[in-house]
Design a protein around this nucleic acid. Structure first.
Length: 509
RNA sequence: GAUCUCGUAGCUCAGCCGGUAGAGCAUUUGACUUUUAAUCAAAGGGUCAUGGGUUCGAGUCCCAUCGAGAUCACCA
């Protein structure tokens, strides 16, 4: 394979060779006795009581300022950056100064992994610094990193900003953009907090199939694949709902799964083809119990991440403090449009949508029409976390019929920052009703709704054995992470967002 | 899928009405034993995304393709 090397890459390969010629292994055996992090030095150093005589740390060399026979450098480790002070005659006590003059000054590059041992002191200008006694190359870097500099006023210069490069080479993004690292740490803490919350409530974390012979549990178009040995079509799951409910049938009273789901639909700053959803099912509870649980869990997440229930998102402040506002879907539509949809039939709804300049088509049934009106006229206005309840039965084929209102189901969504972040039901456990709902979906499919559900005989068989009354919820992790990390694009909260494959230069041989 | 914008050095960006390819940082060489966007002196570095076209002449104008971003559609 022929690759074009830039002059800087050629220089680094030559340096690698010269390092080997000096008898230094550029990729030595991996243990290095690290005993601290730069962040720990920063918090624990006290020049009077705790001089930190022997620190050993490792990381990437990110900047070198050679001052003749002494040099300053910056080392970046998992705790941040710390300055190094390197003195020629201390690094090379004998007559041979080549380790400093040749190796340190000429053959080390920005991005190289090094380990240093020394003591901590403060320079004349007040900078916390490791006075290096010994220095070890741990891994040579052959490609130049973007050099991002921050000046005394905190202004960042030459930031690495191209979204295509940042997302394709997330490893570089993480090295040079500290805020990116912080975003993903925060996402991880968010998931951890939710997991702890559910585990502490006694629920069981489980895993269910990604490859499914029938896709179900959501309204979406799937990815299709093929199993060679079985010679059969399989689908990547669009949801894990039907499998988690099978586990409730089997006697687990509370189960949850952080699940990667796959939906073969458009990509945008709110949509990645694979995304993470946590689903939780709890037996002997209903969706009203689940409202309280979700409210408490997300308030807890906000407090854990920000120390406050208020979270800044763009220009807005979103407050997760309980209790959140609760409206039925019809109430929310009436409040924001002035139209009472409660007694409208399909034609009346179509007419109402037309008056609001909302496009409709012939495949839309009554439920879909209400959903369209809500999505276009109400959802964009809901910034603070808000529960919307009492959805039409037509658009909720897995939810239990409302105990008090015909034509509605026991369901809620949480809308926050104009997007759905959670969706929950009192789960439908009447197997005969469930069969009819699937059959209605098939009719919708025949009308042209590409997202209508398939009939899952095995799931119906499970329900026929009996499922206890159960509350279930799905919470969009990526969407919630966007809010909790103040990011306006889903690609900023997914390490490796889906992108078109890179086209490499033609390879000849 | 539609529309608009963008693609120039390792990174960030200039490049006017079409006339020899530019800067800062990075790199290389030299100076400097407490600097910090280190500084000073010098040098090297480009298939201007790709392919066509118009033109005496294209980074610049036109067309197509590839990639990215934004808005819209679909969805979570």
């Amino acid at each position: 394979m022929s690759t074009h090397l830039s002059d800087q890459e050629i220089v680094r390969r030559e340096a690698l060779q010269r390092i080997r010629e000096m008898g230094i292994d550029p990729y030595p055996a991996p243990t290095y006795p690290v005993n601290t992090l730069s962040s720990a030095i920063r918090t624990s150093y006290d020049p009077d009581n705790n001089p930190l005589p022997d620190v050993c740390l490792a990381g990437r060399l990110m900047q070198v300022r050679v001052m003749g026979k002494a040099s300053f450098a910056e080392l970046q480790d998992a705790g941040g950056r710390i300055q190094l002070y390197v003195n020629r005659d201390e690094l090379c006590p004998g007559d041979d100064k080549s380790f400093y003059n040749e190796f340190f000054k000429k053959l080390l590059d920005i991005g190289d992994f090094i380990g240093v041992r020394g003591h901590v002191f403060t320079t004349q200008t007040g900078e916390l610094t490791v006075h290096v006694q010994s220095l070890t190359l741990l891994a040579k870097s052959l490609r130049p990193l973007p050099v991002v500099k921050t000046d005394a006023e905190g202004q960042v210069h030459d930031a690495f900003t191209d979204p295509e490069l940042r997302h394709r080479q997330r490893y570089v993004d993480l090295v040079v953009n500290p805020g990116v690292r912080e975003t993903f740490l925060r996402r991880s803490r968010m998931i951890q907090e939710m997991r702890n919350c559910m585990l502490e409530s006694g629920f069981l974390e489980v895993e269910t199939p990604v490859l499914q012979p029938l896709y179900g549990g959501a309204l979406a178009r799937p990815f299709k694949t093929h199993h060679n040995t079985l010679d059969t079509t399989l689908y990547l799951r669009i949801a894990n709902e039907l499998y988690l409910k099978r586990l409730v049938v089997g006697g687990f009273d509370g189960v949850f799964e952080f699940a990667k789901n796959f939906r073969n639909e458009g990509m945008s700053r709110f949509h990645n083809p694979e995304f993470t959803l946590v689903e939780l099912y709890v037996a002997y509870k209903d969706c009203y119990w689940m409202m309280d649980f979700v409210e408490a869990m997300i308030e807890r997440v906000a407090l854990a991440l920000h120390g406050d229930t208020r979270v800044t998102v763009g220009e807005k402040i979103i407050d997760f403090k309980r209790p959140w506002k609760r409206y039925t879907m019809a109430e929310a539509i009436q409040i924001h449009t002035g139209t009472d949809i409660r007694h409208l039939d399909e034609n009346g709804l179509r007419e109402a949508a037309r008056r609001m300049n909302i496009e409709t088509d012939a495949s839309m049934g009554k439920g879909k029409l209400i959903d369209e009106i809500f999505g276009a006229a109400v959802e964009p206005l809901l910034i603070q976390p808000t529960f919307i309840t009492d959805y039409p039965v037509e658009m909720s084929p897995l939810a239990k019929r409302h105990r008090d209102h015909d034509g509605l189901v026991e369901r809620f969504e949480v809308i926050c920052n104009a997007k759905e972040i959670a969706n929950a039901f009192s789960e439908l456990n009447d197997p005969l009703d469930q069969r009819e709902r699937f059959e209605d979906q098939i009719k919708l499919g025949l009308r042209g709704d590409a997202e209508a559900m398939m009939l899952d005989e095995d799931f119906l068989r499970a329900l026929e054995y009996g499922m206890p009354p159960t509350a279930g919820v799905g919470i969009g992790i990526d969407r919630l992470a966007m809010i909790m990390t103040n990011q306006d694009s889903i690609q900023e909260v997914i390490f490796f967002p889906q992108m078109r494959p890179e086209r490499h230069a033609e390879v000849e041989d």
